[in-house]
């Protein structure tokens, strides 16, 4: 554990809390992609099955349980409790275009051809692209509420901070995991356009609005 890793985890935690609070306080999930949230739930389920086979630390276990539980709580709020507010006609990204290549890639490019390892690899690849339905939705509607922008910023920062953590670990522990690093870089790059808009618009008090 180093400061970048901890900051990354906290940023991830913050993103989820912002999202849940937004939905709960406004009683609405408008502007949020249910498809991205389903992909995140699938990501954490596939990755954290090792909760029952591999003990790392109390911190690790608590965080994993939190990520799995909140991902399903978000889905419950979006698809059941506040279903009427879900903007499904703007949430039209075809997730099979992500799931199919990610599944094939996980079967081909992995550290070990075993059930748990392929699930882990699948989750790493899937997480990298899981935000695309959400970014697609923002580009389709041409705008995002500020609170949604803060959520996306925290979520994007998390993998960027992990990249610093991997650089740190490479120099201090000679440890690196190419699959995680490459997927993490792809994940972060997908946010670049959004980061730019966040700094130039949202932080100056303007709404995130794409040029027509």
């Amino acid at each position: 554990m180093n400061v970048f890793r901890l900051a990354g985890d906290m940023s991830h935690l913050l993103a989820i809390i912002i999202l849940l609070l937004k939905i709960w306080k406004t009683r609405s999930c408008a502007g949020i992609s249910g498809r991205s949230q389903l992909l995140f739930a699938l990501t954490y389920t596939a990755r954290y099955l090792d909760l029952v086979t591999n003990w790392v630390s109390l911190y690790n276990t608590v965080m994993k349980v939190f990520f799995i539980a909140t991902s399903y709580a978000t889905i419950y709020l979006m698809y059941l409790k506040f279903k009427a507010t879900y903007d499904s006609n703007h949430d039209t990204f075809r997730v099979e275009f992500l799931l199919l290549p990610v599944t094939i890639l996980a079967l081909v490019l992995n550290h070990e051809f075993s059930f748990m390892e392929i699930l882990w690899t699948f989750s790493i690849y899937l997480e990298a692209v899981a935000i695309l339905p959400q970014l697609f939705m923002v580009s389709k509607t041409g705008e995002a509420e500020s609170i949604t922008s803060h959520y996306l910023f925290a979520l994007g920062s998390y993998r960027l901070l992990y990249i610093f953590n991997w650089i740190w670990r490479y120099y201090t522990e000679e440890y690196y995991d190419l699959i995680a690093i490459i997927a993490g870089v792809v994940q972060t790059v997908l946010y670049c356009d959004f980061f730019y808009l966040y700094f130039t618009k949202v932080l100056k008090g303007k709404k995130l609005q794409l040029p027509a």
Binding site: H12, D50, N54, N60, F67, E112, N165, E173, Y176, I179
Partner: peptide
Amino acid sequence: RQNELDHDEL
């Protein structure tokens, strides 16, 4: 050197 199969990260 740590094994990359350990997955100690989140």
